[in-house]
Design a protein around this nucleic acid. Structure first.
Length: 510
RNA sequence: GGCCCAUUAGCUCAAUUGGCAGAGCAGCUGACUCUUAAUCAGCGUGUUAUAGGUUCGAGUCCUAUAUGGGUCACCA
């Protein structure tokens, strides 16, 4: 390990401690109270006359030290918060005081035992009788200093460099309490989502991440290889086809929360691996799924934030159901003046778009053009929660056609804050129709669009055994967390977002 | 992948038309028995991302590279 000047000084303290017979990395620690428990316990007995002193043992990381000759104040931080340690020569002796001030640094993990007291300025503190090093830090944490003004923590210097924050998330978490809070909230979101689905009779399952045939979404997969089986495998791009197999098997309400992998561009809203939740609901259609969706999101917001009013990207957003419902064709007509029903093929649609000065690739499929219109012109306007419904069939190969319109499928997407949040449809359960769609996809696949669906014979076989009508749903959990925390970058809500490898760069000819 | 911006001390940031690289925090030395961004006195810790180039002289100008950020393309 290469050490800089600061680190050498700390490493030297480790040696000095060992020389006096003190182990700076002891095997065990003791704790009777967290910092918050200690404070709470003290407040409960504080007023009582004749109460005996509250003796506690706490543990945590040293976040501040203020030495004042024969006394010393230091804050330690644990997962619950902070507690001030109050060391006095009167209490521990000059030798122990000297040892503390010369061997203990910011960032060290310590254990301290003593009585909880209130200092003259009113802060509940631990009057230390015994203290012990639990783990000596060699590297100084990135400087972070804050003060509490009117109950608000004001940060004066923090770790801000995004690269360092993402690559060394441990340091980010250690010094930025709001980051810890965000990931606690993320955990709350997932827990609330799970509770909602469990309460509605859904069974949580786990399906393969390594798949011989990928499918369920239009995305390029990661490829890997099983050595002993001499078999290429794909990291899943969605759970869809496996979860629907389970509905064939009789699991009428099923969901999975897990990781999807897509071998595509990285951006502020795309990470190569991201957390997805999908559920499938037998005997329901997309309208019922729509209702359940708005209830679920509202429930999660209420559970996690205590409100359905959120602020995202400067917009006040109200998640209270029911959400606005807009027919895709009508929505596009309103913002672009183009009625896609008037243009049944891609050539005429592309021409209509060009007539409106909208860039259009006339060789693209009609569905792709509609998707582009949607993404460029409609999506950014959908700030308040909105369901867009009824999508063109050619970008929805797993969704069921409208009973009276074979060009359109029963599909909706939910948008909030100008961002796509979820996607759902009435699932196609006709195996012959599905085979035709696969074949059509296969043709496009061969023609070079490597994001199209390969044929999945086993999935067709499953459907051939009989698949009940059902509604299906998928939501990007990371995006939901972005929405609920007001973060514009997906990297802020993923603990270890993907970053380029810093140590390479020479030998991988791009 | 294209374009734009950034990269200076452990952290946050300065540095005039190209002219000796410097502040706060933390760190080191000392003082201080109720501090809390503690205070006071002293100490500046650096391959200015990397490799070249222009120049008497480069943190500053030019080229390339790396990483990050933004944006466009891409993206159910």
């Amino acid at each position: 390990m290469r050490l800089n000047e600061l680190e050498k000084i700390r490493a030297e303290k480790i040696n000095a401690m060992r020389e006096t017979g003190i182990e700076p990395y002891p095997t065990r620690a003791e704790r009777t109270h967290t910092t918050a428990q200690a404070k709470q316990a003290y407040e409960e007995i504080e007023g009582q006359s004749g109460a005996s002193p509250l003796a506690v043992t706490v543990t945590g990381r040293i976040r501040s030290i203020r030495t004042m000759g024969k006394i010393c104040f230091a804050h330690i931080e644990d997962m619950d918060g902070r507690l001030q340690l109050f060391l006095r020569v009167n209490e521990i002796g000059a030798e122990a005081m000297k040892f503390f001030t010369t061997h203990y640094d910011l960032g060290d993990f310590v254990q301290a035992e003593g009585d909880v007291v209130r200092t003259r300025t009113g802060e509940i503190s631990l009057l230390v009788k015994e203290f012990r090093m639990l783990a000596k830090a060699i590297k100084p944490l990135p400087a972070a200093k804050d003060e509490v003004v009117d109950g608000q923590v004001v940060q004066h210097a923090t770790l801000q460099d995004p690269e360092l924050r993402y690559r060394q998330r441990y340091a980010d978490l250690a010094v930025n309490a709001d980051v810890r809070e965000l990931f606690r909230l993320r955990s709350d979101v997932v827990r609330a989502m799970r509770a909602f689905l469990d309460d509605h009779g859904f069974l949580e399952v786990e399906t393969p991440i390594l798949q011989p045939i990928y499918g369920g979404a239009a995305a390029r997969p990661f490829v890997t290889h099983h050595n002993q089986l001499h078999q290429d495998l794909y990291l899943r791009i969605s759970f869809e086809l496996y979860l629907k197999r389970l509905v064939v098997g009789g699991i009428e309400r099923v969901y999975e929360i897990g990781r999807d992998f897509r071998n595509e561009g990285v951006s502020f809203k795309h990470n190569p691996e991201f957390t997805q939740m999908e559920f499938y609901w037998a005997y329901a259609d997309y309208l019922q799924v729509m209702e359940l969706t708005e209830q679920m999101i509202a429930f999660i917001a209420q559970e996690v934030l205590g409100t359905m009013q959120i602020t995202f990207d400067g917009h006040e957003i109200d998640l209270t159901p029911p959400w606005k419902r807009v027919n895709l064709r009508e929505g596009l007509l309103e913002v672009t003046g183009i009625d896609i029903a008037d243009y049944p093929d891609s050539a005429s649609l592309a021409a209509a778009m060009k007539a409106k000065n909208i860039q259009a690739d006339s060789t693209a499929a009609r569905g792709k053009l509609i998707d582009k219109l949607l993404g460029d012109h409609l999506e950014p306007t959908l700030i308040q929660p909105t369901f867009l419904y009824d999508y063109p069939i050619d970008i929805s190969p797993l969704a069921k056609k409208l009973p009276n319109d074979p060009t359109t499928v029963e599909r909706f997407e939910g948008f909030v804050g100008g961002m796509e949040l979820c996607n759902a449809f009435t699932e196609l359960n006709d195996p012959l129709d599905q085979e035709e769609r696969f074949l059509a996809m296969g043709r496009e696949y061969v023609e070079g669009d490597d994001e199209r669906h390969p044929m999945d014979d086993d999935y067709l076989q499953a459907m051939s055994y009989g698949m009940p009508p059902m509604g299906g749903f998928g939501i990007g959990v990371d995006r939901l967390v972005m929405l609920l925390t007001g973060k514009r970058s997906i990297r802020e809500v993923i603990l270890f977002p993907h970053l380029r490898d810093k140590d390479r760069g020479e030998d991988d000819g791009e």
